[in-house]
Simulated scan of single mutants.
Amino acid sequence: MNMPRLKPVEGWRPNALLRSAHRCVLALTVSIGTSVLAPGLARADDWGCQVLLCLSNRGGPEQYGACVPPIERLWSALRHGDTFPTCDFGAGGSQGMFATNTFASGGYCREDLLYRGGREQSELMCRATGAINVEIDNQLYTRVWWDVAGAGSTVTEYYGTGSTQVPSQVPSAVPYDPSRSAALFLQQQSEQQNTAGGRGH
């Protein structure tokens, strides 16, 4: 049995695509189970599509048991420096839904995952290995920080309708720029030091 396919239709609204994506995530249970029982029937691009659909889940990429094998395979591949898998949703391509991975660092991180480390605690570092941004209709839908403070743990930020899962000090459903987190983190530390220094006098 082949992976359920989304068929982009001209004029689709993001919500229609999202509903289809979530139906496909739930259908993964059947699809992946069939692929395990009859591996010869699985298509070459199924893994990339499974990964994309699981990463778009607001509850996290491994909320559903069917998503665990493809997502664990993804983490392993990324840790070994492999390229991010691709997905072809069929007619019209997959322009409306795609994902990109960015490796995390002191210059690209969530503010609450930043910390000082390295020699003499002088380096700004990130507790995550990377972040995968999933976009639907060119709008950020989920951002998944992976290997957060250890292999296998993730933090999922959801930016779809009714979003409330965003870092502090960011208005609901407004994506922040992880490349600006370091400046905010350093500013906050400086303010705390100034406040502590003021109390000492």
Rank of each mutant, 00 (worst) to 15 (best):
H80C: 00
C109R: 08
N138V: 00
N133E: 11
G92A: 12
D137W: 13
R127P: 00
T164E: 15
T156V: 12
C109L: 11
V144A: 06
G96C: 03
E157Q: 15
L113M: 10
Q95A: 14
L184K: 06
S122C: 01
R119E: 08
A183C: 00
Y159P: 11
V166D: 03
A131R: 05
V148W: 11
I136W: 07
V166P: 01
S94L: 06
D82H: 12
Q193G: 00
D147V: 05
L140I: 12
Q165L: 09
M125T: 01
C87M: 12
T164R: 14
G107T: 15
H80G: 01
Q193T: 04
R79A: 10
L113Q: 13
D137L: 08
G90M: 10
S181Y: 02
Q187H: 07
T156K: 05
G130A: 02
G160D: 10
A151Y: 14
S168V: 04
Q187D: 12
D112H: 13
R180G: 00
E111Y: 02
G160C: 09
A104N: 08
R110W: 02
S76I: 01
A149H: 13
N133V: 11
T100S: 07
W146I: 05
S163G: 15
Q193Y: 05
S168W: 01
S181L: 03
S76A: 12
T164M: 09
R127D: 00
C87V: 08
Q189V: 01
Q165C: 04
A151H: 13
G106N: 09
W145L: 13
Q187E: 12
E135N: 09
A182R: 14
D82K: 10
E135T: 06
N138W: 08
G106V: 04
T86S: 14
Y108Q: 03
V134P: 07
S168N: 10
G106F: 09
T161P: 12
S163H: 09
D88Q: 13
V148R: 11
W146Q: 05
Q121N: 14
R119V: 09
G117D: 10
P167F: 07
E135P: 00
D88K: 13
D147R: 10
Q139R: 15
S105W: 08
C109E: 05
Y115R: 10
G162V: 07
S172I: 00
A149L: 06
D137A: 13
L114S: 05
L124S: 07
S172P: 03
N101E: 11
Y115F: 15
Q192E: 09
V155G: 02
F185A: 04
C126F: 06
T154Q: 14
D147I: 03
D137I: 00
E191W: 07
T154G: 03
R143E: 10
G152V: 08
L186K: 07
A151K: 15
M97I: 15
